[in-house]
Simulated scan of single mutants.
Amino acid sequence: MRKALVIVSVLSLFAFALQFVLAAVGGFTRPASDDAYALHSVNGMAVIPILTVLTALFAALAKAPGKLIGLALLPFGLVVLQPLIAMLADASTDASGVSTPLGLTIGGLHALNGIVAVHVMVGVSRAARKLADPVPGGEARLVVREGEPV
């Protein structure tokens, strides 16, 4: 189960990295349209949530510490927040539908929230690898923070 946790956490991390690429594809597609973000939406609203839930599930099945299970679930919550941030940004346009400074600032939070989710997944992936890597003597060891064995 621990190797499965490592695999699914790495796949989750890859899906998050791909999400930034797909956002750039949408941003650089000409002519600009909402369809340009279709792959970004599918990855962010289907693939990433499934992988983050699987990561938490495998962490629980691998008998990982509760902290790791909670950290594995955190990106799911951050992903749920993403469309809400995007809707708030879109709703913050002026009467003619033009972006406002407030809307652009809120839109920037969408990217920042994504960066936080990636950072959390990096930590989850590292912790999963440490959990799966047995130390001499046959016991597995997890270091949540440097110098803090769990």
Score class of each variant (00 low, 15 high):
Ala59Asn: 07
Val144Leu: 15
Pro136Thr: 07
Leu39Cys: 00
Val6Thr: 08
Gln19Leu: 11
Val135Ile: 08
Lys130Tyr: 05
Thr100Lys: 05
Pro149Tyr: 11
Gly26Lys: 12
Val80Leu: 13
Val25Arg: 06
Lys130Phe: 10
Glu139Leu: 13
His110Trp: 12
Met87Cys: 03
Asp35Pro: 00
Phe58Met: 05
Ile50Pro: 05
Leu78Lys: 02
Glu146Leu: 03
Met87Thr: 08
Ala32Arg: 04
Gly114Gln: 11
Thr55Phe: 02
Leu73Trp: 09
Val6Gln: 14
Ala4Val: 01
Ala86Asp: 03
Ala117Gln: 02
Ala17Asp: 11
Ala38Val: 09
Lys3Tyr: 11
Pro101Lys: 03
Pro49His: 10
His40Tyr: 10
Val42Ala: 12
Arg145Ser: 08
Ile48His: 09
Thr55Asn: 03
Leu54Gly: 01
Val116Trp: 03
Gly66Met: 06
Leu109Gln: 07
Arg30Gln: 09
Ala86Ile: 09
Arg30Tyr: 00
Lys63Ala: 10
Ala72Lys: 12
Phe14Tyr: 04
Leu61Phe: 08
Ile7Cys: 07
Leu81Ser: 10
Ala32Met: 04
Lys63Arg: 15
Phe28Leu: 13
Met1Gln: 13
Pro65Asp: 15
Tyr37Cys: 04
Leu68Lys: 14
Met87Val: 05
Leu61His: 01
Ile50Ser: 04
Ala24His: 02
Ser41Met: 10
Asp90Thr: 09
Pro49Ala: 07
Ala46Leu: 15
Arg126Tyr: 05
Ile69Asn: 05
Asp133Glu: 14
Gly147Phe: 12
Phe58Ala: 03
Ala128Leu: 10
Phe28Thr: 12
Ser96Gly: 03
Phe16Tyr: 14
Leu81Asn: 12
Ala132Leu: 09
Ser125Ala: 14
Asn43Val: 13
Phe28Pro: 00
Pro134Ala: 14
Phe16Ile: 09
Leu131Gln: 15
Lys3Asp: 06
Leu88Ser: 08
Val143Trp: 10
Gly44Arg: 02
Val118Thr: 14
Ala38Met: 05
Pro65Cys: 13
Ser12Phe: 04
Val10Asp: 05
Ala117Ser: 11
Leu112His: 08
Arg145Pro: 00
Val120Asp: 03
Leu74Trp: 12
Asp35Gln: 03
Pro83Gln: 03
Lys3Pro: 00
Pro136Asp: 10
Asn113Cys: 08
Ala24Tyr: 04
Pro75Val: 00
Ser92Thr: 05
Gly137Pro: 01
Leu88Cys: 02
Glu139Val: 12
Ala140Gln: 01
Leu109Ser: 09
Ile48Lys: 02
Val150Gly: 13
Leu57Gly: 05
Pro65Glu: 15
Pro75Cys: 14
Arg129Leu: 14
Arg2Gly: 03
Ala91Pro: 04
Leu142Tyr: 11
Gly108Met: 14
Pro31Cys: 08
Val150Met: 12
Thr105Val: 11
Leu102Ile: 09
Ile115Phe: 14
Leu74Gln: 07
